[in-house]
């Protein structure tokens, strides 16, 4: 196991390095920050001064070298818009997003496993048809639309929930509900098809011949075998949220990493973009390691190979 994690870390480090290089240069293609931060009639002298302050006057490769040296010392530069270290800005926004993911994913997984398993127990039955239809709708409805409809219905018409921002627990209800919808729809379908395969397997037949109760057949025998694809898809969804639930955070004015990234791209705040990409990539890397360990826990064949 230790050896495995070590190997995976090396691989991830490589992709992380490539990603950082890519982000560094692509961000600089968007144009000069000076155009955005200085008044339109700024003099050449003011521009030079601005560029000098943030180091934009040096050739790109010198900037990159400085960036790499800084990176090695955990210094990711200074945010232009906040005049604070970029890392600090990112680490302020990140917990909000993490919290969103940490609440959303357990709900998604629990609902999907129960619904999908029950639907798979009698494929084509009434419950299966209703669950399949609803999950299909959930999986295919655009997030931004359902978010806006949610705001209109619950915040504007019924006035039971706030429209946007943070502060009270009530502020979290709509964003999380919207965030759950799509992943749940997708995951129900994955659980259902995976469970149908598992329930038609020979070991389930054996369990029936042993006299095992239906509930134990579904949740003890079939479910654990059906989990691998479910874990794969769920981790992908979790990574998606951690990467920034951009649309939901933007619609609900949630100060998470997704919103921060969009704002920083628009404002050419290179240091923040780089720091945000680095932090989220690390988080995704950790998710992947956790998933690999979960695989091994669930399936002994993976543990022994």
């Amino acid at each position: 196991m230790g050896n495995f994690i070590y190997k995976r870390s090396l691989q991830s480090l490589l992709s992380l390095a490539l990603l950082i290089i890519l982000v560094f240069f692509l961000a600089r293609l968007t144009g000069s920050p000076a155009d955005l931060y200085l008044p339109l009639d700024a003099t050449e002298e003011m521009r030079d001064q601005f560029n000098q302050r943030f180091g934009f006057d040096d050739p790109v490769y010198v900037q990159f070298g400085r960036f790499v040296v800084g990176l090695l010392q955990f210094d990711l530069g200074e945010s232009i818009q906040y005049s604070k270290p970029a890392v600090q800005v990112v680490l302020q926004a990140f917990p909000t997003t993490l919290m969103l993911a940490a609440i959303t994913m357990p709900i998604v997984i629990a609902v999907a496993i129960v619904t999908g398993s029950l639907a798979a127990f009698r494929p084509g039955g009434m419950f299966d048809r209703i669950a399949s239809l609803i999950s299909l709708i959930g999986a295919s409805t655009p997030n931004f639309w359902i978010a806006i409809v949610g705001v209109i219905v619950f915040a504007v018409w019924l006035r039971v929930l706030p429209t946007s921002g943070t502060g009270t627990p009530w502020h979290w209800v709509l964003p999380i509900a919207v965030l759950c919808l799509r992943p749940t729809g997708v995951l129900v379908q994955v659980v259902r098809s995976s469970m149908i395969t598992a329930l038609s397997s020979a070991y389930v037949k054996t369990a029936r011949a042993k006299g095992v109760r239906s509930r134990a057949i579904v949740f003890v025998h079939a479910l654990r075998n059906a989990l691998l694809p479910v874990i794969t898809v769920a981790s992908d969804q979790a990574a998606g949220i951690v990467n920034g639930a951009v649309i939901v955070e933007t619609v609900f004015g949630f100060p998470g990493i997704g919103k921060l990234m969009i704002d920083s791209v628009l404002l050419r705040d290179f240091a923040v973009i780089q720091a945000a990409v680095l932090v989220t990539a690390l988080a995704v890397f950790i998710i992947n390691i956790v998933v690999d360990i979960t695989y091994a826990l669930v399936d002994p064949r993976i543990r022994h190979s």
Binding site: Y203, K205, T206, R224, N225, D299
Partner: peptide, 11 residues
């Protein structure tokens, strides 16, 4: 059953 690898639960 016929195929004991399939008939035993792998996990």
């Amino acid at each position: 059953f016929q195929d004991p690898l399939a008939a035993l639960n792998p996990v």
